[in-house]
Design a protein around this nucleic acid. Structure first.
Length: 215
DNA sequence: TAGGCCATCTGGTCCT
DNA sequence: AGGACCAGATGGCCTA
């Protein structure tokens, strides 16, 4: 992974992502089929020593339900539990796949170089947060220059920060406000060359980006 | 080899 | 009752 040459920032527009994340219906995800059987015990698996406790629990459960339902054998209960667990696992897997799809879509609209290392989940969220903030600042400055007297272009360090409030951890990665007060991503980005943090409008002028890239 | 990241399983909780 | 959501645990893969 080569560090990005300075002065050649580009915006990678994800044209391929034309739809917001619709429901991903991949019940069989890439890992679903290859998912190893769980090494852990299923809840219904009782050792002989635990069988008594299991039976007791089942009894209690039946009692709580009023004991009206047709009594089931331990085997049937165990089968039912396994079946429910398996279905829950499938749903959970699918849910996480959907979440990852949404995350991928988000990665797709963030300005990164094609050969960049894939942003991790937390990096993606933080990057997106700061990127949105940078775009917001862009619009704000554009409004000012359109309606009012053209204010002096703020330096990279003069802009506010998305983290000026109590947003907690958001700024710990790619924060426009680094320890130096600069909007350039200081520490974290240098720790991970190849990644680029969103730049402020003022900073964007330094590259090939202009406001029209955002408007 | 340690540490980071990730996928998956699991049980608990809340909601419909 | 069943589904969605969540957080903890676990194990695999990759990289410095």
């Amino acid at each position: 992974m080569a560090p990005h040459p300075l002065g050649a920032p580009t915006i990678q527009v994800a044209h391929e992502i034309e739809q917001p994340f619709l429901g991903v219906s991949d019940n069989v995800g890439p890992c679903a089929a290859s998912a190893p059987p769980s090494p852990t015990r299923m809840p219904g698996d009782c050792s002989e020593a635990e069988a008594g406790a299991c039976r007791g629990a089942a009894k209690k459960l039946r009692a709580r339900r009023g004991g009206r339902s047709r009594p089931k054998s331990e085997l049937a209960l165990s089968k039912q539990r396994r079946s429910r667990r398996k279905k829950a696992n499938d749903r959970e897997r699918n849910r996480m796949h959907n979440l990852n799809s949404a995350l991928d879509a988000l990665r797709g609209v963030l300005p990164t170089f094609p050969d960049d290392a894939k942003l991790t989940k937390i990096e993606t969220l933080r990057f997106a947060h700061n990127y949105i903030w940078a775009l917001t600042q862009t619009l704000r400055i554009a409004d000012h220059s359109f309606y009012g007297p053209d204010p002096p272009a703020p330096s990279c360090g003069e802009l506010g920060s998305p983290d000026s409030g109590s947003s907690g951890d958001w700024g710990s990665l790619y924060s426009p406000v680094s320890q130096t007060g600069s909007l350039s991503p200081a520490v974290s980005l240098e720790e991970r060359p190849g990644l680029r943090a969103p730049t402020s409008p003022a900073c964007l002028r330094l590259g090939t980006l202009t406001f029209s890239d955002f408007l």
